[in-house]
Design a binder for these strands. Structure first.
Lengths: 143, 143
DNA sequence: CGGCAGGTGGGGAAAAGTGGGGGAAAGTGG
DNA sequence: CCACTTTCCCCCACTTTTCCCCACCTGCCG
């Protein structure tokens, strides 16, 4: 269960520390890839396998499915933590996420999003102002 | 079953004592997150799991679902009590709830709300003066 | 009036985060 | 094919923060 936001530095070698609370769940390996809103996604390996199975089952002729495949797979990178609990973010991914020397890791229960700090703050503001919009959606889910 | 209001100090390290009566039900762990109306919510772990299962099952490609996920999980924090029955309130949550050095814990049967004392008193006043307003709503619920 | 339970504060050990150096592997040019 | 350069990555060490535990205080109950 990944929860909470954690801000960490990306050092000169492109390494990103995984918050200690997230490490156990990623010990079996992880995949880092691009997400949908110019952020990066970190999936535990089991979650990733499940995701790829579903995406690969999509039609080859559907334009959206092709784009989704490219987004997910083209820049994906399997990573393991070093003994200090860090992973290496390949340059293509750092560029894809607009990341420089700081990153915000956001735990979303089953996976993690990685944001450039200023872009994450924008998302937070949108959440604060649009919070009421989600009332209906949550009611649908029975929450 | 959480009942009653309890006022406690938040010490300099951001720790909040859980009322002794509430502890047994939270022994298996809890999740603290932001609620509505600028208060915090404390859920026993089983209650929380039930709440989140449906959200985590939502699509990754749906924009609204992504924002809902962020709203719920980004400011949540899993906590356990120390041997004195206290939990640590992360700074982001203290800010989110407008909490300084005092907090009011309000038991609401299945979960707990945490309020800044002055804001809680406002709620109490509104309850006292607007009590009759709830008649219609309660009739809807068959109470 | 004494004991006990709940609440509060502070000190110390342990872990988390961060930076840097050295060695191996891969890539490039002669 | 060899040598040089560059990149990658593993490990060590320092600093800061976290969190765990001990001890005190206060109020209630016997």
């Amino acid at each position: 269960m990944f929860l909470g936001t954690h801000e960490h530095t990306i050092d000169e070698k492109g390494r990103l520390a995984i918050p200690a609370r997230f490490r156990a769940e990623l010990a079996g390996g992880m995949v880092v890839t691009r997400g949908f809103d110019r952020c990066l996604l970190i999936f535990p390996l089991p979650f990733w396998s499940d995701l790829t199975r579903r995406v690969s089952a999509l039609s080859l002729t559907d334009e959206d499915a092709r784009m989704l495949r490219r987004l997910l797979f083209a820049n994906a990178s399997e990573q393991e933590m070093d003994r200090q609990g860090r992973i290496l973010l390949p340059q293509s991914l750092r560029e894809g996420g607009g990341l420089a020397d700081q990153a915000v890791l956001v735990g979303l229960d089953t996976f993690i999003e990685v944001w450039a700090p200023d872009r994450w703050r924008e998302v937070e503001e949108r959440l604060a102002s649009q919070g009421p919009r989600f009332d209906e959606q949550m009611r649908k889910l029975g929450i």
